[in-house]
Design a protein around this nucleic acid. Sequence first.
DNA 1: TCAAAAGTGTTGGGCTTACACCCATGG
DNA 2: CCATGGGTGTAAGCCCAACACTTTTGA
Lengths: 241, 241
Amino acid sequence: MDFPGEQNYIEQLSIDCVIFGYHQKQLKVLVPKLNFNGDFYALPSGFVIQDEDIDAAADRILRGRTGIQDTYIDQFHVFGKAGRSNETFLDKLLELNKDTLGEKGMNKKQYDWITKRFVSIGYYALVDINKVIPKKIAIDASIDWYDVRELPPMIMDHNEIVAKALDHLRINIDDKLIAFKLLSETFTMKEIQELYETVFNKPFARNNFQKKILDLNVLDRLEKKFTGAANKAPFLYRLRG
Amino acid sequence: MDFPGEQNYIEQLSIDCVIFGYHQKQLKVLVPKLNFNGDFYALPSGFVIQDEDIDAAADRILRGRTGIQDTYIDQFHVFGKAGRSNETFLDKLLELNKDTLGEKGMNKKQYDWITKRFVSIGYYALVDINKVIPKKIAIDASIDWYDVRELPPMIMDHNEIVAKALDHLRINIDDKLIAFKLLSETFTMKEIQELYETVFNKPFARNNFQKKILDLNVLDRLEKKFTGAANKAPFLYRLRG
DNA sequence: TCAAAAGTGTTGGGCTTACACCCATGG
DNA sequence: CCATGGGTGTAAGCCCAACACTTTTGA
């Protein structure tokens, strides 16, 4: 969430980003907490500048919180119910922040702008969580990775947006070869499998899974990875190209 | 395309509808021609009223040109390139309609509103072409069904929008059981097959196709259809439920 | 009785799934 | 040499594509 200030944005149109990461068998979503009294969590969001492609706006929002670009990001759904507005949450926020609001610098004009009914384009991005140093922007009190199954209650319909993003991730993970975007540059077969098992919340047979992934013909097999464990060392792989 | 007049619409946000019909082995799209000098074709479009769901807006636009509601309609993509504006086409239109423009009633304020950069949500709908009597609205000179492969050049990126809608129709036709929406209430297996062959532009084996469709378990077999032809009469089917 | 088109059966190949076995590794 | 976990092979079953055959219809 951005306070629009004097920026030349398209009105009543926003972009919400569901940024997925993966770490220790958990699928994670990057969620900032707003820098106000009260526990307000909101997806990384923003608006579209007048002379900016919507995809570029989504990239910009992603980059603002992660520093990442050139990863997978795609629109997946438009959220446009009639009553879809920041007003409810913002009034609650204002109520809890009467005293400090002057400092934070939201004026009446901004309030009117931001509390209109909004149509939001949902984007989801997949990032290598190790490459990301989450960045707070002005309105963030904190920004952290949360397990997709243990998200805090977020403002508006943001929890639904994540649920729908996860649906689309599942649908597209095989067709668009996007799973690898969640892993480091090199990874073992077991790591891919655990990622799949996390995303789909079900086990896969080890041998058949390996066959399926290798049959995609998009991985290069690299050297073995010696961990020191008393067992056969797994190969490392890397996405080709 | 609608001239916004005094309506309370969301600015810079439009909805474009690709309305598919099917007739005589042709997949058709409903395209109005604008009531101005010059050959301006544009998809049925409109804007979102402030207190209206975007889905309701799409329904309203569909209903306005077809009278149809309660059919399949769904958003499929947002078109939001930075330079996406009516200005180029509208200036050409104005140039060709200098003399009559006063009558048509577009004023400067409306011109400014309509020529801004627009983000458009693409919807596609599937209708039973026999149930539709295409309706001209004020700005239409005519409205007709065109073979999806022989569309006239349309304004802005509308030809691309149709191409993308067709992609989504192909992707969803099996999963969402939407093909039947393009047929009359009762139909023969051959008619379904011809529809599929038209949509995918390739032949299907008759016996295997029948098996596949019946295995969906969504059709009721009705009485036979006697056409008077000197051959076995095919069964009629109807979508169950 | 015949041609045309609809309905149904059957076979083979490819892909997925389940089970089994072998191999590398460090203690 | 053993436990552990990784890599690979194989057979069964399912799905889909191709071919074949039968049935119905009106001339």
